[in-house]
């Protein structure tokens, strides 16, 4: 079922469902990744995988990655394919729902950014800005499962 999970972001716990995002992403993953010619680079995983992030930093990283996708990525992913555009809309609007839920952690002051998470986020932005905006956005969208796997 579209089951909610309890996500543990350091001290903060949030009940969310990524099922609909995964379904939307799975439906367009091949299409999106086919638009990413540079397979040797990664936005989220270079030079270190997200999996090296310590628990206290999880909330900060997740919160800023949600902002990254909403503010920078989705708007540069418009395609000529109506089906793909509709799925991207579905994912983007689901991100807004999750962003709102994660906001609860911020209100409880449990989403503070340490040195390590700040560095990590800077690296992701540097990776992103190292490409032209459309390539960077498509690559980031194509790596959405990396983020979802890490979150879960």
């Amino acid at each position: 079922t579209a089951g909610n999970k309890i996500f543990h972001f350091g001290a903060c716990r949030v009940s969310m469902s990524t099922t609909e995002i995964r379904a939307g992403f799975t439906a367009i993953k091949a299409n999106i990744q086919a638009r990413d010619p540079i397979r040797t680079l990664s936005i989220l995983s270079y030079p270190h995988s997200l999996h090296k992030v310590k628990s206290p930093d999880r909330c900060c990283i997740t919160h800023h990655l949600f902002d990254f996708y909403v503010d920078k990525v989705f708007k540069h992913c418009k395609t000529e394919d109506s089906f793909v555009n509709r799925k991207i809309s579905s994912i983007a609007n689901s991100f807004l729902s999750m962003k709102r839920k994660l906001g609860q952690c911020q209100e409880q002051n449990q989403c503070l950014c340490g040195q390590e998470s700040t560095e990590k986020l800077k690296q992701i932005l540097a990776n992103y800005e190292g490409l032209n905006v459309t390539s960077a956005a498509m690559k980031s969208l194509g790596e959405l499962d990396i983020l979802l796997d890490w979150m879960e």
Binding site: V70, F74, K75, S82, R86, S89, A92, N93, F95, L96
Partner: peptide, 19 residues
Amino acid sequence: EFQGEYERVYANESWIPIS
């Protein structure tokens, strides 16, 4: 056509056709 909160707030109030 439809417009989610994302389109309204982050994507210049764009609309998306339902094919």
